[in-house]
Computed example of a mutant assay.
Amino acid sequence: MKILIIEDEIRAVSQLQLVLKTCRFNYELLDIIDTVEDAVIWFEENESPDLVFMDIQLADGLSFEIFQNTTVDAPIIFTTAFDQYAIQAFKVNSVDYLLKPIQKDDLSKALDKFLKSNNSSKVNASVLKQLLSDLQIPSQREGMLVKSGKGFVQIKISDLLYYYSEDSITFGVTQSKRFIIEETLDELYSTLDQTKFFKINRGQIVAKSSVEKISPYFNHRVKLTIDNPRDQEFIVSRPKTSDFKNWMNK
C-alpha cells in the first residue's frame, strides 16, 4: 500500500507513523509534503498513491487549495486539530477524518472504511471549491495593536500595504512605517477581510490597494510591484497564481 503524508508538523508525522505501526498497517511511504505549493507539484510529477493522509491547515494555506490547482486521483483521510474543519472535510466525500492527536481506534476505523470502499473513494472537487469559498468569509476587523517603543499603538487595517514574516517575526508595513505584530501570519490572515488582502505565498500578505503592477515570472508565477516594498520581493506562489488573478479582477 503506497501512501503520501501531507502534514507540516514533524511531531504529527511521527505520531501518525507510530499509530499506523500499532494498527499493523503495511505501507510504503512515498513522501512527506508540508505545503500546498509542494503538494501541487508532487501530484503533477508523480503517479497517484493508494491513500493520502492530508492535514487541513498547512504552512502556506488550507490543503483544500491543492484540489483547485491540480487533479488528485486518490482517496483522502483528512487530519486536523480543529473540529469545524473536520466536519466540513467529512462532508466533501473524503474517506474519513481524524482529529489530532490521532488515536489508534479512530485510525483503525478509518483504515477499515478505506479498505471496504475498495480504495475508490475520491474527493469531490466541486464541493471542495465551494467549501473553500465558505471558509473565506470576510472578517470585519478594522484595527490592530502593534508594538511601538516600549508600548503599543492601534493602527487601522486600511493603512496597511502588506504583511510579511521574517525570522519568525510578523511585520506590517504602511506608507511610512514598519510595525511588529504579535500574531503569526496565518493567525493574522484568518482575521482579515480577504476581499482586500491576499496571502500570496507562505510569508507574505498584500493589500489589493498596494498592488501597482503584475508581471510574468518563471515557472508560471507572477511578480508584483508593490507600493513601498522596503527591499521585499513579492512573488505569488504557483498554486495561488490563478486565484490571485481572479481576486485582483473582482
Rank of each mutant, 00 (worst) to 15 (best):
A74P: 01
K91V: 09
I33R: 03
V19E: 11
A110H: 09
L16G: 04
L58S: 06
M54R: 00
L98Q: 08
I76K: 03
L107N: 11
D105V: 03
Q68E: 07
D55P: 12
T71F: 05
S48H: 12
I66T: 03
L29H: 05
I41E: 14
E37N: 13
S94Q: 13
L62Y: 12
D38N: 15
L18F: 15
E45Y: 09
E28S: 14
A74L: 00
T79G: 00
D73W: 14
D106I: 05
V92W: 06
A110S: 12
D55E: 07
T79P: 02
A59H: 08
K91T: 01
L30T: 05
K21T: 15
I87D: 04
A74I: 11
L18G: 10
L111C: 08
V72Q: 04
I76C: 06
S48N: 14
S108F: 13
L58Q: 13
T70P: 07
P75M: 00
K21R: 15
L58Y: 05
Y27D: 01
I102W: 03
N46S: 12
I56E: 00
I66S: 00
F90R: 03
I33F: 00
D60G: 08
A74R: 02
D31W: 01
F53D: 11
Y85F: 14
D50L: 01
A39L: 06
F90H: 10
D50H: 10
S63D: 09
L98T: 01
T35C: 05
E47D: 13
F43H: 13
I33T: 11
V19G: 02
T35P: 07
T35N: 07
D60T: 12
P49D: 05
E44G: 04
I87A: 10
F82Y: 15
M54Y: 03
I87P: 03
L51N: 02
T79N: 08
S108Q: 13
M54D: 00
I102K: 04
I87E: 13
S108W: 09
P101H: 13
I41H: 11
E37D: 14
I102C: 08
F43L: 06
F53Q: 07
F82T: 09
F25N: 03
E45V: 06
Q84S: 07
D31M: 05
F64N: 00
F64Y: 07
Q103A: 03
L99Q: 06
A89S: 09
D31N: 14
A89E: 12
F67W: 04
L62N: 08
N46A: 03
T79S: 04
Q84P: 06
D106K: 13
V52D: 04
N93A: 01
E37I: 02
F82N: 10
I56L: 06
Y85D: 02
A86K: 01
D31T: 12
F53C: 14
T35F: 13
I33N: 05
L98I: 08
R24D: 15
L51Y: 01
I56S: 13
F43E: 12
V36D: 07
L111R: 10
L111A: 00
D34V: 10
F25Q: 03
